[in-house]
């Protein structure tokens, strides 16, 4: 049995998915991946303004100022007398970058680059998508070293990690 786990681990390591130690799986409090299904991950839409939680990069276009919300979307502000007024939040999971030309906003939806028509910010439209083109090599590892529940890509895209009790975990780094 141990040999089987070890060879599984070696297979995992060889394709770069995770690293393993030699031990048997543990049962306990470990990091567990949080998933978004592929269709949820692609759900891009305009929403009312939101408070900044984990503010990312900034951008300016016409009288609008933008700030990325790490992996969640884009805060849009209207600049009025040198003061940014909250205007919209554009939900784009996985977003870390943006650039605008004309009425088109280009951003990344995880590893895809999408074009959003922002001529009507109340209802942004996805105009195009280039799939699997922007790889940041973002690791699919939990925030702390130790045992964790292995990632199952059939469940969707990993968007975060949470600690859970009484979980069997074989992956470790």
């Amino acid at each position: 049995m141990k040999k089987k786990i070890l060879s599984l681990c070696l297979l995992g390591m060889s394709i770069g998915l995770f690293s393993c130690n030699r031990g048997a799986p543990i049962q306990g409090t470990v990091w567990v991946p949080k998933y978004l299904s592929k269709s949820e991950a692609r759900d891009i839409r305009s929403k009312p303004p939101q408070a900044v939680s984990s503010g990312g990069k900034i951008y300016a276009w016409q009288d609008f100022v933008f700030q990325l919300e790490s992996n969640a979307g884009i805060h849009v502000y209207k600049l009025v007398d040198q003061k940014p007024q909250p205007y919209k939040f554009i939900q784009v999971y996985g977003a870390q970058e943006l650039s605008i030309r004309g009425n088109y906003l280009y951003t990344n939806n995880f590893t895809d680059i999408v074009t959003l028509d922002i001529s009507n910010m109340d209802q942004v439209l996805v105009k195009s998508r280039v799939e699997n083109t922007f790889a940041l090599g973002t690791s699919t590892l939990p925030p702390q070293q130790g045992f964790f529940q292995c990632v199952d890509t059939t469940k969707g895209i990993v968007v975060g990690w949470e600690k859970k009790n009484n979980i069997e975990a074989t992956c470790k780094y």
Partner: peptide
């Protein structure tokens, strides 16, 4: 006039009719 302005930490930028992106 229609292209926006990014910061220095950006990985996306537009010049002319092209979008340039640097990934890893």
């Amino acid at each position: 006039p229609s292209t926006g302005t990014g910061g220095s930490l950006a990985r996306f930028t537009i010049s002319g009719n092209y979008l340039y992106a640097v990934d890893q």
